[in-house]
Nucleic acid binder design. Sequence first.
DNA 1: ATCGTTGCAAACGTTTTGCATAAGG
DNA 2: CCTTATGCAAAACGTTTGCAACGAT
Lengths: 177, 177
Amino acid sequence: MHRFSRNVNHPEQNSNPFEAVEVSQTPIERFEEYLSSRGLRKTDQRRYLVEQVFSRHEHFDADQLIDQLPRKGQENYVSRPTVYRTLKEFVDAGLLRRFELNGRSVYEPDYGYPEHDHFYCVKCRELTEFQSDELAQLRDEIAKQHRFRVRSHRFIIQGVCHSCSSRRNTRRKQDLV
Amino acid sequence: MHRFSRNVNHPEQNSNPFEAVEVSQTPIERFEEYLSSRGLRKTDQRRYLVEQVFSRHEHFDADQLIDQLPRKGQENYVSRPTVYRTLKEFVDAGLLRRFELNGRSVYEPDYGYPEHDHFYCVKCRELTEFQSDELAQLRDEIAKQHRFRVRSHRFIIQGVCHSCSSRRNTRRKQDLV
DNA sequence: ATCGTTGCAAACGTTTTGCATAAGG
DNA sequence: CCTTATGCAAAACGTTTGCAACGAT
């Protein structure tokens, strides 16, 4: 029924630990454009999901997203298959990136954010971000040497975060990945 | 019945693109030691798998491994659950590392090999190795700044490999990851 | 004799699919 | 009106588990 609203503000850019990156469109606008360009339709479910995803999350998996959506029977309910289908579209549209951790897909905003990488603590299983310009430089150098055309990268440092190693919290489950 | 054979030679270390690393034990010996130290048993299945895995592979997933093992009814058949259980033991024993790509676990030797990382070509879906000392240095620097205790890392550069970009081979399936 | 190990079948958790109905263009 | 999108139920996927029989120590 209603259109995608324009000029929505982006609280997530303020809660982001890094400077916001200059972008010409909101994620919502960019998604609209993606849909039109492919002759896809602007449905209530897509409108609702784009709002939810780009106003709340850092990184998340499908279940975390679904848990904070309305339940079946309630207003704005979106079925599980539609959530998965739409997440795939967000990735296609360049709005999210996807990677895998412990056997599940993890998504994170890939638009309006600076490049960053992650620490993964094997004790608390927390994924935290860090930013390093040298890394992208080194990546490009390496790729150039191997004549590899870079599209993106995934860098995760696994180990134990500062709070886990200081509070000598030795429990863990599987130490996957 | 028979014991693990000693002093097995390691053809994989010669086919490896990098220099072999000095190791005091073969993977087979190391696995034996791991088993004894934990009171685990030296079974025919474990003997067979350790030989297969450490004489043939670069990186592989469970299905690729199973495909090249004897089928049910044949000599040396190992059931699927036992393959998974044993791969987990190899990881525990520090013989393999494991990571995830396109929704499945990928394993690679982690003993007697230098550290390395990967290019992943989204066209031919080939995973190829590269080695960079600067990367480990940079990783340690970054971790130190964030007081993160490094256990390992995972770095994958995604894009298009040289042969795919030169033979303008534009087909692809999903471009996951 | 004990207790770890195996194979089987069945379960698991996540993600995907086929299909009939609904709804955007 | 045509075609895409949705929800449902069920399947598919890779992986894990319970259990009885087996085999190493």
